[in-house]
Amino acid sequence: MQHDHTGMWMPDEPPTWARLFIPRLDGWSVLAVVSVVLLVAYLVGVARLHRSGVRWPWWRTGSWVLGCLTLFFATGTGFNGYGMAVFSVHMAQHMVLSMVSPIFLLCGSPITLALRSLPRGKGTAGVPRALLLEALHSRFARFLSHPAFTVPLFLVSLYGVYFTPIFDDLMANPLGHQFMLAHFLVTGLLFFGPILGQDPWPRTVGYPGRMLELLIPVPFHAFFGVSIMMADSLVVQTFAHPPASWGIDVLGDQGSAGAIAWSFAELPTVVVLAVVFFAWANSDERRGRRLDRAAERDADAELAAYNARLKALAAQEH
C-alpha cells in the first residue's frame, strides 16, 4: 500500500475482487465519511421516533442502510484508488453512485423521517425543521427538481464528462476525482427523487409523467455504453497507461467499462419503474377505499345527487 503526496491511497498491485472491497480510508475518502454520518443520523432519527411511540417501516431503514453501504463501498474501499487507474473500476463507481446508491437512499424516505423526528416549534430547537421546510418550498428547489434541469443534467454527466476534456482535467488530481464522484451522486438523487416520490418533493407530477421522465434517458444511456464499448480508440486518456505489471489491455478494459454502463441502463430503470407502478396501483386502491368509506358515511349522497341532476336535465329536455 502506498500514498501519493496528497495523502490519497494509490494501488501498487493489480486489482482483484478482494482488493477492491478492502476498506481504504485516506484523506480523500470524503464521501465514505459522509456515508457513515448519514447512516448514524438516520438511525438516531428512527430511534427518536420509536421512543415517541411512532413506528417506522423496517424496509425503509433497510433501504437506507443499503444505500449507505453502497456509497461506502464505492468510495471508501479499493474502488476509490483503483478508480483512478482502471476505467472499468471507475465506471462501476460512476454507475453505483448515480443509479444504485440514490435509489436505496431515496427509498429510505430521509426527508419524511427528518420532518417527523426533528423538534417542532418556534424556538431554537425547531430551527432545523423550519429550514428544511423552507428549502423544500423554495423556488431554487423547484428549479433543481424540474425535469428540464434533472434530465439534461443526468445526460451531461455521461456525454458532457466523458466525451470532453473535462474528465481528464478532473481526474488529474484527487480533489477533482472526489468532486466528480460527488457530482454523480447528487445527479442521481436529483433525477430519481421526483420520480420515486417517496418523500415530500418541491415538484410533484402524476405517475404517468414520472414513468415518462424515467424512460426518456434510457436510449441515450444505452447508446453511451455501446459507443464506449465499440470505440476503437481510447475515449479518455487518464487510463491510457496503467502499470505495465498489471497486464491490463486498455482497449479491452474500456470495452468492459462500456458494458458496465450499458447494463446499468436496464436493471435500475426496471426496479424504479416497478416501484412507481406499484405506488400508482396502491394509490388507486387507497383512493377507492376512501371513496367507499365516504359513500358509507353519507349513504351514497353524492351518487344520489348525481342521479337527481340527470333526472332534472332529462325533465328540462322534455
Score class of each variant (00 low, 15 high):
residue 65 V to L: 09
residue 306 Y to D: 14
residue 93 Q to K: 14
residue 76 G to R: 02
residue 67 G to C: 06
residue 127 V to R: 13
residue 317 E to A: 15
residue 103 I to F: 09
residue 273 L to Q: 12
residue 121 G to T: 12
residue 25 L to E: 01
residue 261 A to I: 05
residue 97 L to W: 01
residue 212 L to V: 15
residue 150 T to N: 00
residue 188 G to L: 12
residue 101 S to V: 11
residue 102 P to T: 11
residue 83 G to W: 02
residue 78 G to F: 02
residue 83 G to P: 07
residue 131 L to E: 10
residue 139 R to P: 00
residue 189 L to W: 06
residue 282 N to D: 13
residue 98 S to P: 00
residue 193 G to F: 11
residue 17 W to R: 06
residue 182 A to V: 03
residue 75 T to E: 14
residue 313 L to Q: 14
residue 73 F to P: 00
residue 246 W to N: 13
residue 64 W to K: 06
residue 303 L to R: 14
residue 86 V to L: 06
residue 108 G to D: 09
residue 92 A to M: 15
residue 44 V to P: 05
residue 64 W to I: 03
residue 91 M to Y: 07
residue 256 S to N: 15
residue 251 L to H: 13
residue 124 T to C: 10
residue 235 V to E: 06
residue 122 K to I: 04
residue 163 F to E: 01
residue 216 I to Y: 09
residue 232 D to N: 14
residue 89 V to S: 03
residue 170 L to I: 02
residue 45 G to P: 05
residue 153 L to S: 11
residue 292 D to Q: 11
residue 273 L to E: 12
residue 103 I to K: 06
residue 233 S to Q: 13
residue 305 A to F: 05
residue 230 M to L: 08
residue 42 Y to I: 07
residue 76 G to I: 01
residue 208 P to D: 08
residue 124 T to S: 14
residue 234 L to V: 13
residue 12 D to L: 00
residue 218 V to M: 12
residue 194 P to Y: 07
residue 212 L to A: 12
residue 154 F to C: 04
residue 212 L to W: 07
residue 78 G to K: 01
residue 32 A to Q: 08
residue 88 S to W: 03
residue 275 V to K: 05
residue 312 A to P: 00
residue 52 S to H: 14
residue 257 A to S: 05
residue 189 L to I: 12
residue 52 S to T: 13
residue 181 L to T: 02
residue 244 A to W: 00
residue 167 F to P: 06
residue 62 G to P: 07
residue 25 L to M: 08
residue 223 F to D: 01
residue 158 L to C: 06
residue 243 P to Y: 04
